[in-house]
Design a binder for these strands. Structure first.
Length: 265
DNA sequence: ATGGTTGCTTTGCAA
């Protein structure tokens, strides 16, 4: 099973791009999308279903919004991160799929950006990550395969930015933000890309502004974390930076993990 | 060099 996460930055603006990517021979079995910027009713469901994907969305008007596309049929789909009933932002959807030997859970999450510092946006970012931690603790306790994929809006280490000095005052690189990711990993979750390489310049985001792509001024903020039961079946990870050079690209590119799970017979 | 670009809710906001 190939699982990908991709912040699409507007699914309606990016539909041609997305369909072309899904039509490739290497297209993933499960695709976690973030920033669909669409209500569920306007999500281009039929175009994607016609390529053999099942579709579950958790959108909202104008911004945020997440979705999971899957060649496997959903056993369940759950919307929203528990722990704060008043939170109206659509940032979390969990799908459950039957595979050989049991089930696998896959989450598409769009973690808050948190900028600028010193505002309620940063407070919300940290509080959201604390809610995610509580959720993840309960899920890890199930001892099931779990894929926690998304735009974390966190730069883990200095090597994950071309110019880390540029990010010292940014919410994506604050000690509290980095600690939130470290605490998830401390539960026993494996971060796929760093599990297979310590190479630099493994970026997943290049700003539209100031020629960031042309200068390779990128950062690595999109991640796939695996529970131990999923990590046992993990064989490879990659970043598909080709799509950043396509016409009308998202500012993010897909991260992909290979897992040795198969549809039940 | 406090700029630059993109998508949506548009003449502002979020990223």
């Amino acid at each position: 099973m190939r699982v990908a996460t991709w912040n699409i930055n507007g699914v309606k603006a990016r539909l041609e791009n997305l369909l072309h990517w899904l039509e490739e021979e290497t297209a993933p079995d499960v695709v976690c999308l973030q920033e669909i910027k669409s209500v569920d009713e306007q999500f281009p469901r039929m175009e994607i279903e016609s390529l053999g994907y099942h579709v579950e969305t958790h959108g909202q008007k104008g911004f945020n919004g997440v979705a999971i596309l899957s060649k496997l049929r959903f056993d369940e789909a759950t919307r929203g991160l528990p722990g704060e009933e008043s939170d109206a932002q659509s940032r979390f959807i969990e799908g459950v799929f039957s595979v050989d030997g049991g089930v696998i859970r896959v989450v598409s999450a769009y973690m808050p950006n948190g900028n600028p510092l010193g505002t309620e946006k940063f407070t919300y970012k940290i509080a959201w990550m604390e809610r995610l931690q509580a959720w993840a603790e309960a899920r890890v306790a199930l001892e099931e395969p779990l894929v926690l994929a998304g735009d974390y809006n966190i730069i883990p280490h200095p090597i994950d930015a071309r110019n880390i000095q540029d990010w010292l005052g940014d919410a994506l690189y604050q000690p509290q933000s980095r600690a939130a990711l470290r605490r998830l990993e401390a539960l026993g979750l494996t971060e796929c890309v760093r599990a297979v390489t310590d190479a630099a310049e493994t970026y997943t985001f290049w700003d539209y502004q100031a020629g960031a792509w042309q200068k390779n001024n990128g950062i690595r903020i999109d991640h796939i974390l695996l529970s131990p039961e999923a990590a046992d079946r993990f064989s490879a990870a990659s970043i598909d930076k080709r799509v950043r050079a396509w016409e009308k690209p998202s500012d993010h590119v897909p991260v992909i993990a290979e897992l040795d799970f198969h549809a039940p017979h």
